[in-house]
């Protein structure tokens, strides 16, 4: 017990405090003098930093584009694999696979699919349509990354929602059927309310993960074209490890932290609060 406690404190709690302290300092890892205290300067200058503001908007748009679609499709999949039939385990596993393959590897596959002679352009040309420079066009790059994340996030969401579906007592469905409820009403008044606890968890976890998009951006676009896919995490990475600004990068990280907590909390309240 003691080693675990010490380890968790040193490697999980101390870095949070240390990072918070760093966010009030100016520090380059190359300088051999220590961090220099600057107070809340980084936070106030972030307020008027156009790059940071833009990265926040891009991250927000990314989460909003991916989350509703992936949860909706995952729910359809979960309902499809919720029936007992031979071979259902195979489908559950197959649909889960994108989740376990690394973001780096799947991004490489999608990089090819989005390339000039990749899958998407071949399909377009099959229908006689002109190809697109998916990842090189400011208009489409973030959408392209979002499409990949929708696909990537289906598996884990499906498994969680499936567990949620299976936790709904069968008697509720029977009782509703006796009362003459049709398929839509069963979904609306039994399934959805029954899924509420797991939906709260799924949405919160998705917000936490999606708001930290990094590896896929690194592989697909490097934040470009013209910064149109520079998420907050990507900006923090460049600020810290390319421009050596550890202080302001830490401040950005804490603003992101606060926003993630705030939005997960709001969405949890929103979902679980709608009980008449």
């Amino acid at each position: 017990m003691a080693p675990a406690a010490v380890y968790v404190i040193v490697f999980h709690f101390v870095p949070v405090v240390y990072g918070f302290v760093l966010s009030f300092t100016s520090y380059s890892p190359l300088s051999r003098s220590g961090p220099e205290f600057v107070g809340g300067d980084h936070y106030t200058s972030l307020l008027s930093d156009p790059d940071f503001g833009r990265a926040l908007l891009i991250t927000g748009r990314y989460v909003l584009q991916v989350l509703p679609l992936t949860v909706a499709i995952a729910l359809v999949l979960a309902m499809l694999v919720n029936r007992p039939f031979k071979g259902v385990g195979f489908f559950r596993s197959a649909l889960y696979i994108p989740h376990i393959v690394s973001l780096t590897a799947v991004s490489m596959i999608w990089l090819w699919m989005y390339s000039q002679n990749g899958l998407f352009n071949e399909v377009l040309s099959f229908f006689g349509l002109p190809g697109q420079a998916w990842l090189l066009d400011e208009q489409t790059a973030l959408n392209a990354a979002s499409a990949m994340r929708i696909w990537k996030a289906l598996g884990s969401n499906m498994v969680l929602l499936l567990a949620g579906l299976q936790s709904i007592p069968k008697e509720l469905y029977e009782a509703a059927r006796v009362d003459g409820a049709g398929r839509w009403n069963l979904f609306r008044y039994v399934t959805l309310p029954g899924l509420r606890p797991i939906l709260v968890y799924v949405v919160a976890m998705d917000i936490i993960f999606l708001a930290q998009g990094f590896a896929e951006i690194f592989v697909l676009t490097q934040g470009g074209p013209l910064g149109s896919t520079t998420t907050v995490n990507y900006l923090i990475y460049t600020e810290a490890f390319q421009y050596n600004q550890f202080g302001s990068a830490s401040a950005m990280a804490f603003v992101l932290f606060a926003l993630i907590i705030g939005f997960s909390y709001l969405s949890m309240r929103g979902i679980s609060g709608r009980r008449n």
Binding site: H12, P15, G19, F214, N233, S250, A253, I260
Partner: peptide, 29 residues
């Protein structure tokens, strides 16, 4: 043991800490 419950909640809360928050401190450590 004493303090088990608050410690457990603190542990669960680390799940919400973005990687970018701890990345720089871990690098320096």
């Amino acid at each position: 043991f004493r303090g088990a419950t608050p410690m457990f909640y603190a542990l669960v809360a680390t799940a919400a800490v973005p990687v970018s928050v701890t990345l720089i401190p871990l690098f320096l450590m």
